[in-house]
Design a protein around this nucleic acid. Structure first.
Lengths: 372, 372
DNA sequence: CTGTTAGCGCTTTCAT
DNA sequence: ATGAAAGCGCTAACAG
């Protein structure tokens, strides 16, 4: 393989950790084969009891008391031998792995990291581990394509953040325990989502209060459920308030944002404020406005529906709606565990905490300023 | 839990997927218990052969040929029953799980996503799955804290991107199969890293060619190995070329970048060009320069050592050094598999493809422009 | 209180 | 060419 070199020369790594002279004796690969880990039977043998006794003690079986002396000996022997329960054997017997798989789309958007964090943390609290599986390509596979993870006993349940609103994603039947995270799946009662309509209302109320009446919403593809809900909510809310709304769907990338914004500026009456669905699109949108000589927020206000620390450091700091992402991740884990424990299906909506972060990218529209 | 609501009202989700009327009969939770997955013995029974025969056929055992008729029957029955091998039982028997754990730090930096992607893909090609484990806190735990994943048979090996250059991370002994990714670990012969000195040289050559002689390097904490290597290489290379160099370490965040830049502007002779170690710091640095009224690139040129699509869309597009991140991830997987297969230990350096992406944030220094 | 027994689902000699 | 048997390491009745 080109570009890879085994064995660096000292010129490559001259800032070595220690003054180590030529080849130290203890260097090189593992000594004498893989040191086998201690098993239950090893402890049993050492202590002179049966393995089931050891199992009971180590699992804190509350049934009856064990002779304290034995109890102590088992515990200390286990400790001393560095005993680790074999998760495979245990899972095989118990018929549960204690693991979830979290399937996330192949996107640069930082919201996934925050979502993951919330899920990881809650799972740990509840005694599960989460293995994150990233989609191998940009275009998500249907939910059923991940059922194998449970069917092969690699996980007890699925956290799916990849479902799309397309026909190919709808088959599949009931499937193993799963919830959809930040998306609504094809089957009912498994959705854990945030209050997108609420976010839209927060945006409209804030901007409306400043005098804006002509809105744009630049967002991802309509097949993405969050986008679909934001757009639907915006359409209804704008209609109800008598605001005009232009919706533009584009790829969730810098380039997509640039393109859509450029096209928007060429057409029809220019809105006074634009909501942007993703951080990457936002960068593109700002570049397009700059290039077109449209001042932000003077001629066009901007609001991001992704919150990120970097927004506060941009030339024009960008106002955003901050969503409860880690709470969503945690709620998804809770919902999945409930499903596994046999609770009836039911959708979950995480509403709080949600807030609008005013920064510098929103100003009253020119008309409102002139009227003063 | 506040902010969470089970059972959305139709007002919450009025844009329902289908015109579905009131409660369809097939809705709700799983019907009649978890449909048990087909096992080897189910197939054996159906076909009328022994399970070992089925196992051999399904594993494509090359030993002898099986009677074609049986062979076909087994295959089709397996297919029809939707047979899935139980990964637990298989792993227990084979003494290998076919899984790796990739431990990544809790950072917003997009490089981890790209690294992951490379590793995920290569692992898949080589028949492994990768479970990503994110550190629960900002401050990484020592490598030994993750050995349990192998000791408990949850994974066959570890990809560690969390080692720091601090005494607490050095203990541990040999440990299970593992490699350090984008970091050098405390134990020799397990490092898979990129050519940071090469990146530094690329930066210095480019800037030096434009006439810069006074450099700054703004980077993360010195305990991070990549930072340590970049700084060391920069010191040596600048000394060799007679360039001046000011190094500033700061938290790898927007705020860290802002702070360090602000302090740099207050002190001593101002460098004409600054390299920045992470994207987040870069945002902070640009904000600080803007606030101080220092023009980029007029009064200060800027180069990022993180490459990201958004750099091309900033007000001043930022020149960057693009590193082979996904190649690094793939190489780490290869190295880990080699280790597991008993290959001797040895460090790996991924050198290509590496390139400098010229955008708008570098110009010749004022002195060079005046001299013309 | 603790030992015996019987597997979880699969692979893998060893016979036949 | 296929079946029998023996476990991987652990848990969970059920006996004693």
């Amino acid at each position: 393989m080109a570009g890879k070199t085994a064995g660096m020369t000292s010129a490559d790594a001259p800032e070595s950790r220690s003054p180590a002279p030529a080849a130290p004796p203890a260097a090189g690969s593992d000594p004498g084969g893989p040191r086998r880990v201690s098993r239950l039977v090893d402890i049993a043998e050492a202590v002179g009891v049966h393995v089931s006794t050891v199992s009971r003690v180590l699992n804190g079986d509350p049934a009856q008391s064990i002779r304290p002396e034995i109890y102590e000996r088992i515990l200390s022997t286990a400790q001393q031998q560095g005993y680790r329960p074999n998760a495979l054997a245990r899972a095989l017997k118990r018929r549960r792995t204690g693991a979830f798989a979290f399937v996330v789309p192949l996107l640069r958007n930082p919201i996934w990291a925050r979502l993951q964090r919330g899920a990881l943390q809650r799972a740990r609290e509840r005694g599960y581990v989460v293995m994150i599986m990233e989609e191998p390509t940009e275009d998500p596979k249907p939910p059923g394509d991940y059922y194998y993870l449970v069917e092969e006993s690699r996980a007890d349940g699925l956290l799916l953040a990849t479902s799309l609103r397309v026909p190919e994603h709808s088959g599949g039947g009931t499937g193993p325990p799963h919830v959809y995270v930040n998306r609504r799946g094809p089957d009912r009662g498994h959705d854990v989502i945030m209050d997108e309509p609420g976010a839209i209302r927060m945006f409209l109320d804030y901007a409306g209060g400043l005098g804006h009446r002509s809105f744009a919403l630049l967002d991802g593809p309509a097949e993405v459920d969050t986008v679909y809900r934001r757009v639907g909510a915006a359409r209804r809310a704008c209609a109800a308030r008598g605001f005009s709304l232009a919706v533009r769907h584009a790829a969730p990338t810098e380039d997509g944002g640039w393109d859509a914004t450029t096209r928007m500026l060429r057409r029809g009456p220019r809105p006074t404020i634009c909501g942007v669905g993703s951080l990457n699109q936002l960068f593109g949108a700002m570049a397009a406005l700059r290039e077109a000589g449209v001042e932000v927020p003077g001629e066009m206000s901007l609001v991001s529906f992704d919150d990120d620390e970097c927004l506060g450091y941009l030339e024009v700091p960008v106002t955003s709606v901050s969503m409860p992402l880690s709470q969503l991740g945690a709620a998804a884990v809770d919902a999945l565990i409930a499903r596994i424990e046999g609770a009836p299906a039911g959708d979950v909506m995480v509403r709080e905490p949600m807030s609008l972060q005013p920064r510098g990218s929103v100003a009253p529209p020119a008309s409102a300023r002139a009227a003063r």
